[in-house]
Amino acid sequence: MKNAAYKADRNQSQLVAVDMQTKLSRVMSSDIDGVIKNCAILLQSAALLEIPTIFTEQYPKGLGLTVPELSPYLAGKKAVEKTAFSCCAEPAFNRQLLGDHTQVILVGMEAHICVLQTALDLLAQGKTVFVLEDAVISRNPENKRNALNRMREAGVIISNIESLVFEWLGVAEGDAFKKISQLVR
């Protein structure tokens, strides 16, 4: 195992929040509040550490805009609107992917559709892909489990928000460490 490839590096990371939308969130499993909370923690941590962030919205006319709980952490950013399931099928998404950032961290919904297809396409582009299991969701928990298994077998690194943000930090010191420690409590 190449240890460095399996550890998140904030200088190589880019965060992608996939389709965290209002109407879609209403039909998710009962874990949706926890997933939204975890996505908020991750977005705040990324902002503190100056990690570039992209967020997408699948057919917003029908599925609504991004959930209001995440809006404060996306201020100044414009959603990549899409109709394709894989974010990578959208040219605007690909233009925002930073070539020098080799790691892409994926969160959002649905794990077995848009997150899965995006993860597989990013792997095909040579990216190291992390999916945070406590920040992705599907309507059916079995579909989420299946998607996580498929992604793991394909080479996606399955992790969680707390592990990832502390990998980003690297050391237990400084203002960012103090603020992020408060967020994950």
Rank of each mutant, 00 (worst) to 15 (best):
40 A>L: 09
58 Q>W: 12
34 G>P: 06
65 L>Q: 13
72 P>C: 07
44 Q>P: 04
36 I>N: 07
90 E>G: 00
38 N>Y: 03
69 E>Q: 14
66 T>W: 13
92 A>N: 13
41 I>A: 15
36 I>D: 02
36 I>E: 07
39 C>D: 11
60 P>E: 12
81 E>C: 02
75 A>V: 07
45 S>Q: 07
84 A>Y: 04
51 I>G: 00
45 S>M: 05
87 C>E: 06
37 K>Q: 12
96 Q>F: 00
66 T>R: 14
75 A>C: 01
74 L>W: 08
39 C>Q: 11
69 E>Y: 04
51 I>H: 01
47 A>Q: 14
54 I>P: 01
57 E>I: 12
64 G>D: 08
65 L>W: 08
91 P>F: 05
79 A>L: 08
47 A>I: 00
94 N>E: 09
68 P>T: 10
49 L>M: 15
81 E>K: 10
65 L>R: 15
58 Q>R: 14
72 P>G: 07
52 P>M: 08
57 E>R: 11
86 S>E: 03
53 T>C: 11
38 N>F: 01
85 F>S: 08
55 F>C: 06
91 P>C: 05
70 L>F: 11
94 N>V: 03
41 I>R: 14
93 F>K: 12
82 K>H: 11
83 T>S: 05
77 K>E: 08
86 S>I: 04
95 R>S: 14
58 Q>P: 07
41 I>Y: 09
81 E>Q: 12
87 C>N: 13
83 T>W: 10
52 P>C: 10
85 F>A: 04
57 E>M: 12
70 L>Q: 11
89 A>T: 01
60 P>G: 04
73 Y>H: 13
90 E>L: 00
69 E>D: 15
71 S>R: 14
68 P>H: 13
56 T>V: 11
53 T>E: 09
69 E>P: 07
53 T>L: 02
35 V>W: 10
70 L>M: 11
51 I>E: 00
52 P>S: 15
69 E>K: 15
67 V>R: 14
64 G>V: 06
86 S>P: 01
53 T>P: 00
78 K>G: 00
38 N>D: 04
86 S>T: 02
72 P>D: 06
38 N>H: 13
85 F>N: 02
72 P>Q: 09
68 P>A: 10
67 V>E: 04
46 A>T: 03
59 Y>H: 10
79 A>D: 13
60 P>N: 10
45 S>V: 00
74 L>Q: 08
95 R>A: 13
35 V>G: 11
83 T>G: 01
95 R>F: 00
96 Q>P: 00
56 T>C: 12
90 E>S: 04
55 F>S: 10
44 Q>F: 03
48 L>R: 11
46 A>N: 11
37 K>P: 01
78 K>N: 09
55 F>Y: 15
51 I>R: 01
61 K>E: 14
37 K>T: 03
47 A>H: 01
58 Q>N: 06
42 L>F: 07
53 T>W: 05
87 C>H: 08
88 C>A: 04
84 A>M: 06
69 E>H: 05
50 E>V: 00
45 S>Y: 03
59 Y>W: 11
59 Y>P: 02
75 A>I: 12
45 S>R: 03
65 L>C: 03
47 A>L: 12
35 V>K: 14
36 I>S: 04
61 K>N: 09
93 F>D: 11
